[in-house]
Design a protein around this nucleic acid. Structure first.
Lengths: 202, 202
DNA sequence: CTCATTTCGAGGCACGCTGCATCGTATCTA
DNA sequence: TAGATACGATGCAGCGTGCCTCGAAATGAG
């Protein structure tokens, strides 16, 4: 296959799914680790494919071989952490489960590197449809939210369908962080959980 | 004042607040109009200061004279439209006011050029603290939301403080659009309005 | 163990955008 | 009419992108 400038090139050659990766794992981990660090240190906007490669001690082409976008790297770097940070143990009654989740979500979005990565990706998704699709296929928030909703549903007969219930639960927290940069206080989170539960129980 | 490359330069010289603008208005309008069009046509990511200037038939330095960032231009280009599109007339009871607002907000975020601009700005705010601050100082959503909340509060004694109530109201809608790109159906918006009103009435 | 295959790090390069400098011109004010 | 100012256009260094090329190193089949 011949590459030329200003020509739309299918990325079928770049970033092959799993062709055979003899000693890739070391470089792969180095890149993911570098992205994780750089996001906190310099921010998403100043994070550069070139900079990532240099920081990881890796050739630029090595980065392009497995990922074609900053967003792809970032998603892969944060998705596991995000899942574990957002999965709260079942504990206490419905209200307690909701509150635990809202607190975990707030800490994730405001304090965790993985949460910072998710916010950066969600921001980029507003500029680039491909990133949006990427984020939809591996939606970080949907799964942990669903787990909590499933716990609450038995005692919340008026809870609407999953999609609306999920946005009712995490939407206010996400909106607050995205617009102001900081989360709601624990006391307000508790009020929010109580409101929802009250509405869902009648 | 001397400019040099790779030197942090105060933007005090560029974009003076209101020094005197003899025949600026024509160029200013041309730029704002060009940004409005280009956002829809090519998207935020592909929108370029150079491209804006060319599209507006304006020198690049003229653009830098009045604004220092794509985000500044975009905000100025959409803030008036946003306010008018999100201000719903008082009509009917509390539930009707809430629903009207939620419908207007959904249409704004999914169908309006101004809404597209707001989403792009909110996305950029996740990458750049300056944009976040810019967006906070002229928060497009806060004011219209507050108007609706003030109408509803007299019949909603259990409504929490403004900040939480506002995010409870628009957070789910915003989160839905930001994550999936499309809004909730009217029927789901109605359900959401009913939920909130029920909870706020205690 | 040997050798073809593949990836590795490093560097090169064309292209486009950024942001300031500068030019000559058009417009407004005094 | 004279001075001040903003205008459009253009030039430029610097930097990131994404593909190419190179020789070295590691892999895995025979």
């Amino acid at each position: 296959m011949v590459y030329r400038y200003n020509e739309i090139v299918q990325t079928s050659e770049v970033a092959p799914p799993t062709p055979g990766r003899p000693r890739s794992e070391a470089a792969r981990r180095a890149v993911l680790h570098a992205v994780d660090d750089m996001l906190v240190e310099v921010g998403y906007a100043a994070m550069t494919m070139k900079g990532i490669a240099e920081r990881a001690g890796v050739g630029r082409q090595t980065v392009y071989r497995w990922w074609s976008t900053k967003a792809q790297i970032l998603l892969e770097a944060c998705v596991d952490d995000a899942r574990s940070e957002l999965t709260t143990p079942r504990r206490g009654d419905a209200q307690r489960n909701l509150l635990d989740y809202l607190v975990a979500l707030t800490e994730f979005l405001t304090g965790s590197p993985a949460g910072l990565a998710y916010r950066a990706l969600l921001g980029e998704a507003q500029h680039d449809p491909e990133v949006r699709e990427l984020l939809c296929t591996a939606d970080v928030l949907a799964e942990p939210t669903q787990i909590v909703l499933d716990r609450v549903r038995p005692v919340a007969p008026a809870m609407p369908e999953d999609r609306l219930a999920a946005t009712q639960l995490y939407g206010p927290i996400l909106a607050q962080v995205l617009t102001t940069g900081s989360g709601l206080t624990r006391s307000l989170l508790k009020t929010h959980a109580n409101s929802l539960l009250y509405a869902w129980q009648s």
